[in-house]
Design a protein around this nucleic acid. Structure first.
Lengths: 266, 266
DNA sequence: TAAAAATGCGAACGCTCGCTCGTTTTATGC
DNA sequence: GCATAAAACGAGCGAGCGTTCGCATTTTTA
């Protein structure tokens, strides 16, 4: 039951959906593993690209599954070999160290963040609310598509070599900075009423993280990515909206409060 | 610079502080280890209570430090023995298994949650806003006082034996349920405007978790627990407030928006 | 102060880990 | 269809893990 189906008063702009995001970016396992191969031609000893990608896919897939279940450290390479249908020796043609495997995954996560969030559509200069909405929306759709990757990065980053921690931290701060910038924009143009934009940005961030860290909770409740986008946007906008004037936004529906209520009630 | 010191218009109610929370509950390391000993007299082989508590303290302290740095699994008992100033053998008079050590810590966390959040002051029946405020405040102060414990529970719970996971999950759901109840109360009395109370509660939760999971971030920014309480309360209340009538609350200051702005700006 | 109880100690054990390497199997080119 | 290169294999290595246990040391008791 997509939100678009219900009766709506008057005018309804086209909402960006998970599907439209997926049409825009290719974050499929295959695509990611292809990029991964390109970035690690030096450590991956397999010559033929199509063979390498074909084997990388189950390796990475299984790694994410096992590591997210028990922790990366607790996942033994023997388990990984068995589950992914390879031998111990074969694994080592795709990485030279268990830590390298970790870094390969972290690298794809942070580059995915840069790619998806790094190039916002133009024309946001005069519309901070829409810019903020785009940020939240894009982040949620990205982490939806790459959920196990982001959980992995979130849970394992701190435990590991310095380089990995820095990569994760930098990626996190980038997101927070972008939110803060959008907020600052809105404050400047008098649309938002925010005391400390950076502090507020750091309150918004956990709302985005919860979507992938606690994904199963929302799945259990039947909350779709689109519904989550709407709820978070609304929650945030209501909290930061300048009381004196309402927030006009092209893409947003008029009577949004009661509507989310209906959408959210499973 | 506590909030109480600044000039304030007219009437100012006494705000609950971290200090007043600490006066109410004893969640010092010593107190927790004492409770821990009582709960595990069967597995702790040391006879004299004061000896047991005296040794438990460095053991637990070190465990939290090392596990939060590298992960519980990656922390070896040899490291733990060295850092806590005991021998391998001595460790095993305080727990019979590494997993037991984990469970002992998880147990204290979940019982601390029950104790602190389980008995709200009376007189909230007719004031949902204050009830919600009390919940957020208490949770934030509790996790401030026991920060390493909560980080430990948050990061390690999923990786470990079924019993541990269930304990953590149950504790989490309890908190969420309490928030949802307070929200439902507010909706019923017309003070809050919330579509799905459970969904909204699950959006509020990550705001509470962020305080201890990302504690260093807020420390770096010079945000005090009191400031965080105020910011989160405000953020949430603004988002859920029923537009038609304002939220009257005994303990809240009048001009709170601009004030938080000042407080939050380091 | 000597006997007894409580506690601390750390080498040793069995096991699993990440990782290597000589061999076997599969794919490619002529 | 054979020679050669590419890839997969899996037993074996040393290291480090959690855990044990007999004995040394400290503390209490009488």
């Amino acid at each position: 039951m997509p939100a678009e189906d219900r009766a709506t008063p008057k005018w309804r702009p086209r909402q960006r959906t998970l599907k439209s995001f997926q049409a825009e970016f290719d974050f499929s396992l295959k695509a990611i593993c292809t990029r991964m191969l390109e970035r690690h031609r030096d450590t991956i000893r397999t010559q033929k690209p199509h063979v390498a990608v074909a084997k990388l896919m189950p390796i990475i897939q299984t790694t994410l599954t096992l590591a997210n279940r028990k922790g990366f450290h607790s996942m033994s390479l023997r388990d990984l070999a068995t589950e992914s249908g390879l031998s111990m020796g074969a694994l080592y043609t795709y990485f030279d160290t268990k830590d390298t495997l970790l870094m390969m995954i972290l690298g794809e996560v942070s580059s995915a963040v840069s790619e998806a969030l790094g190039s916002p559509p133009e024309g946001f200069a005069d519309n901070p609310a829409e810019r903020l909405h785009w940020l939240l929306e894009t982040h949620i759709y990205l982490t939806e598509v790459m959920q196990p990757w982001f959980v992995f990065a979130y849970m394992e980053a701190k435990a590991f070599p310095k380089e990995g921690r820095e990569k994760a931290t930098k990626s996190e701060l980038l997101t927070e900075k972008m939110i803060a910038d959008a907020l600052a924009d809105g404050v400047e143009s008098g649309l938002f009423s925010v005391g400390d934009v950076e502090f507020t940005a750091s309150l918004i961030k956990p709302l985005l993280q919860d979507w992938y860290v606690k994904r199963s909770k929302y799945r259990r409740r039947g909350i779709s990515p689109e519904q989550y986008v709407q709820a978070v946007t609304e929650f945030v906008e209501t909290a930061i909206r300048c009381q004196s004037e309402p927030l006009p936004r092209k893409r947003h529906r008029a009577n949004h409060r009661s509507e989310t209520a209906a959408a959210a009630a499973s």
